[in-house]
Design a protein around this nucleic acid. Structure first.
Lengths: 121, 121
DNA sequence: ACATAGTACCTTGCATAGCAAAGTACCTGT
DNA sequence: ACAGGTACTTTGCTATGCAAGGTACTATGT
């Protein structure tokens, strides 16, 4: 295991949340999402995104429609379903709770490092 | 896929970071970690924690020693190696960057929802 | 008409990792 | 010796990220 791998692990799951958020703003297609996630430094690739969108669609949280493009093949524009909106809310709550939990752990470390109290030895 | 599953996904990877943090404070054994992670609402189980500790050990980031217990079987007390400390720093940087990225995506959604600008239709 | 390039979406195969459940082993008290 | 509690380990299943390769449509140049 290396640091790159660990960073990948950390992004997992959160990606799903970010994608739902992006779609919640209005209709977008996959390349739009890739651009935005890349510019937010989330490093996603097609092989991850497409299967994820398919999963979200099959779970009933997304829907899409084909839209002709003036330059290239048609695109799938995604939207959130009503169920998807509820799910996104739940994910957002989870995210904030998780961020709080992490903050609690980090903060605890900083507290204790001031008056170091190792255990056995 | 359901919400519980999605929440599990979101915790992945971050768990590793939290465990390293907990160990960085001083020597602990697995049940200590389970207690702390549970009280921080991170919901971890043995089947996840033990293989994870083994992986971190095999990667050279943790070391442990057996310590006799006054009530029960001996315990493995873990410590961070020097390499592990470097790794933890990298993970912490990644975490803050990731939290920033998520914040950027969420914030962008809030901005746009004020003056809704859906695309095609 | 044909070839090339660009864009967009999809699929296959592999490796990693979470988790439930079952298993092993040690210690203490009766 | 046996029951109960504690601690660590292993097995088998499943989900999922990702690299790489594939399909298909459009536009442009010759």
């Amino acid at each position: 295991m290396n640091i790159e791998n660990a960073q990948v692990q950390m992004r997992k799951g959160i990606l799903e949340f970010c994608i739902l958020h992006i779609i919640s703003r209005g209709e977008v297609y996959a390349s739009d999402m890739l651009d935005e996630l890349t510019s937010a430094k989330m490093m996603v690739v097609e092989g991850t995104l497409y299967p994820l969108l398919t999963r979200l669609k099959n779970s009933g949280w997304l829907d899409y429609k084909w839209v002709e493009s003036s330059s290239g093949p048609p695109r799938k524009y995604y939207v959130l379903t009503d169920e998807g909106k509820i799910f996104l809310d739940a994910m957002q709550t989870t995210w904030f709770e998780l961020a709080d939990s992490v903050k609690a752990v980090i903060h605890r470390s900083e507290e204790l490092s001031k008056s170091d109290t190792s255990k056995p030895s």
